[in-house]
Write a protein that binds this DNA or RNA. Structure first.
Lengths: 346, 346
DNA sequence: TTTAATTATGCAATCGATTGCATTTTAGTT
DNA sequence: AACTAAAATGCAATCGATTGCATAATTAAA
C-alpha cells in the first residue's frame, strides 16, 4: 500500500461502469436511485476507502454546514455552558461549530465576524462584547441573508432571533428579596449600560426599589466592567462615601465575590452587616463562604435554543421569518450572602 | 441595489481587461505581480465589493485553514483555558478553530474525529476521553499525514507532539507536602488509569510515600470518574473501612471539594482532622472554605504551545519531524485545606 | 403487443480560485 | 539598435461533487 490518491466518485463510477451522478445520488440517499444500485455503490465505496470530499461539495453547494459562534470569552462558565448547548444541537444535526472569542474587544469582534463571513458560515450565533456600540460587522450577515441569532448580549437595533434571560425580572426579584430581608439602602454595581442586559438589570433594580417606596441614590450606583478588580474598586468608592449601606446587588458573581472578600478584609461581616447578591450563578458561588445568593441562567438550554432557531432559519431561508425573542426564566438562588437569619438548608 | 451575484476574480479581471490569474496573484500578494497592478486590482476589488470565495480556494488548494479541537468537555475551566490559548495563536495565524466535545464518550469522540477528518481539517488538537482505550479514530489522521497534537490526556502509543503537565512531579510534591504536614495515612482518589495523567498522579503519590518510608494500603486508593458524586462515594467507602486517615489526595478539585463538603457534614474538620488536596486549580478552589490546596496547570499556555506546534507541523509537512513531549511545570498552591497551622496568608 | 407513464440512470456544465508553463513586456547591456 | 535577462502577465487545465435536463429502462394500462 503506497500513498494512493483519494478515491472520488468518478473512481467508483468507473469501477462499476456507471455514471458519477448516480454514485453521487446514491451516496446522498437520493430517492431517484434504486435500492439495488444504492447498495452496490455503498459497498464499493466502502471497499475503495472512499471519503467524500467535503470541500468540493461545499464549494459546489455553497454551504459549509458550519455554524460560527462569537462570544466574549470561552473561559467563563456561563458562556461555555451556552457553547455546550449549541454544540449539542448543532452536532446532532450534522453541523460543525466554529468558535471565536472577542475578549470583549471590538476590533477583534469585527475581524472575527469578517472572517466568518468570508468563510461562508451557514449562520452565526453571537453575544456581543462590552465595547460593542456599532454593528456594521453584524449587518454584513443580514445583508446577505445569513441567519444570525443573538444570545444573552443581544442588540436591540438588529432584527433577529434573540435568546435572552429575564434580566429585568431577575434583578427585580433580587432587589425585592434584599428588601424583604430588611435592606433599605441598597447599592448596585452594574456593567456597561450600552449592553442591554446590564441596563435591564439596573432597571429591574430601580423598579423594585421604587415599588417598595425606597429611594435610590445615584452615588450608590456604580458602573464598570465587572471584572475582579472592579468589584474591589467599586466597594472602595462606596465605602469612601461613608454611607450606611445595608445591601449590594452586583450584576455578576465575579464582582460579588471580590466585594465580599474585600469587605471581609475590612472587618465587615457578610451577611450580618451587609447583604450581597450576584448574578449568573458561577460554579464557585455555591461553595464560597458565605455562599453567594445569585440568579441562575439556563446557559446550556439557551445554547440549545439558539442553535435550534438558527438551524431552522438556515433550512428555511426563503420563508419570511418572524423573529422571536425568547426570554428564558431565571431562578433566584437564595444562599447565605443575602440572609440575615441563615438557616441550614440541607 | 438589488440582490447582485457575488463578485469573482473573473469579474474584476474583465473589468480591468486583464487575466484572472493576475487578479488572483495580486490579491494573494504574490511577488510576481508589480506594485502598480496590485494596487489597481486591490482598489477595484474593494469597489466591487469582492469577497474571496474561501470555499473555492479551499477546494482548489485542499486546505481549510481550520484546526479541529477535540476535548472531553468545554465547560471546565482547565479545558476552556486551553481552548482560549489555542484560539489565541490559531487566530493570529489565520486559522479558524473548530471545537467539539466528546463528553468523555468514546462513540462521540470517534464520530467527531471522523467528521473532522472528512471535513479536511488541516490538523487536530486532542485530549482524549475517559473511556478511550483504542485509537483507530486518531490513527486515521496519522495515516494521511494530518498533523495531530495531544494535550493533557495524551496517548503513549501514538507518536505525536504532546503537551502535558508534570503529573508525576505534581503529585509527588502534593504528597510530600502532606507528609511534611504530618500525615502518615494518606488516601488517594484517582481517575481511570487508562489515562496516563491519572496513572502518573498515582505513581507520583506512591513514589513520595515510598521515599518517605510510608506504607500505602491498597484499600486507601480508589479509582473513579472524578465527578462530584464520585467524591462522596469515595469518602463513604474510605470511611466505612473505619480507617484513621489523616489526609486525602484527590486527583482533581471537583472530588476534593465534594469530599470536603461531605466530610464536614460528617462532623470531620478540614484541615484539622483530615488534610485534603486537589489537582487542577479550578477557580472555585481559591474561594471555598477552607480554600483547597491544589496544583496549578498552565492551561492557556498549554493551548498556545499546542497550537504553535501544530501549525508549525502543518507548515512543514514534508520535513521529518522529531516529535516532542513538552512537560509543563506545575505549581503547588498551598492553601487552607492542607495546613494544620493555618497562617493568614494575606 | 403497443403505447403511455413511471422509474432509473447518464450527460455535461458548473461552481471560483489556483498554478505550471508559455508568452509578452520591460529593463539592462553592449 | 540589437539582444539578453529579468520581470510581469496570460492561458487553460484542474480540483470533485452536484444537478437540470435528456435519455434509457422498466412497468402498467389499453
Amino acid at each position: 500500500m503506497t500513498k494512493q490518491a483519494e478515491t472520488t466518485i468518478h473512481d467508483i463510477a468507473k469501477y462499476l461502469n456507471i455514471s458519477a451522478s448516480t454514485v453521487s445520488r446514491a451516496l446522498n440517499d437520493n430517492p431517484l436511485i434504486s435500492e439495488a444500485t444504492r447498495k452496490k455503490i455503498r459497498k464499493v465505496a466502502n471497499e475503495m476507502g472512499y471519503r467524500p470530499n467535503t470541500l468540493a461539495a461545499n464549494f459546489r453547494t455553497k454551504r459549509t454546514n458550519t455554524i460560527g459562534v462569537i462570544v466574549p470569552l470561552i473561559n467563563r462558565h456561563f458562556f461555555s455552558s451556552v457553547i455546550s448547548g449549541i454544540e449539542d444541537i448543532a452536532y446532532s444535526q450534522g453541523y460543525t461549530v466554529s468558535i471565536s472569542q472577542s475578549n470583549d474587544n471590538f476590533q477583534k469582534e469585527t475581524k472575527i465576524a469578517k472572517t466568518m463571513f468570508n468563510n461562508r458560515v451557514d449562520g452565526v450565533i453571537v453575544s456581543i462584547g462590552m465595547e460593542t456600540k456599532s454593528f456594521e460587522h453584524l449587518e454584513l450577515f443580514l445583508e446577505r441573508k445569513i441567519p444570525l441569532v443573538f444570545f444573552d448580549r443581544a442588540v436591540d437595533e438588529i432584527n433577529a432571533h434573540k435568546i435572552v434571560v429575564d434580566d429585568f425580572g431577575g434583578a427585580y426579584r433580587v432587589t425585592k428579596h434584599l428588601i424583604e430581608q430588611g435592606a433599605k439602602k441598597i447599592a448596585h454595581i452594574g456593567g456597561p449600560t450600552n449592553l442591554k442586559i446590564y441596563e435591564d438589570r439596573k432597571q429591574g433594580f430601580l423598579k423594585a426599589m421604587k415599588d417598595a417606596g425606597l429611594k435610590t441614590e445615584k452615588k450608590l450606583i456604580i458602573h464598570n466592567s465587572l471584572r475582579h478588580d472592579d468589584g474591589v474598586d467599586a466597594i472602595r468608592k462606596l465605602m469612601s462615601k461613608n454611607q450606611k449601606i445595608d445591601a449590594i446587588f452586583c450584576a455578576n458573581d465575579t464582582t460579588a465575590l471580590s466585594a465580599i472578600v474585600y469587605l471581609k478584609e475590612l472587618g465587615i461581616k457578610i451577611p450580618e452587616d451587609i447583604l450581597v447578591m450576584g448574578f449568573s450563578n458561577e460554579p464557585f458561588s455555591k461553595v464560597t463562604t458565605p455562599s453567594i445568593s445569585t440568579v441562575k441562567q439556563p446557559g446550556f438550554l439557551m445554547g440549545q435554543k439558539a442553535a435550534e432557531l438558527l438551524i431552522h432559519q438556515i433550512n428555511n431561508k426563503k420563508a419570511d421569518i418572524k423573529y422571536q425573542t425568547l426570554v428564558m426564566p431565571t431562578e433566584l438562588l437564595i444562599r447565605e450572602s443575602s440572609q440575615k437569619n441563615v438557616l441550614n438548608l440541607h
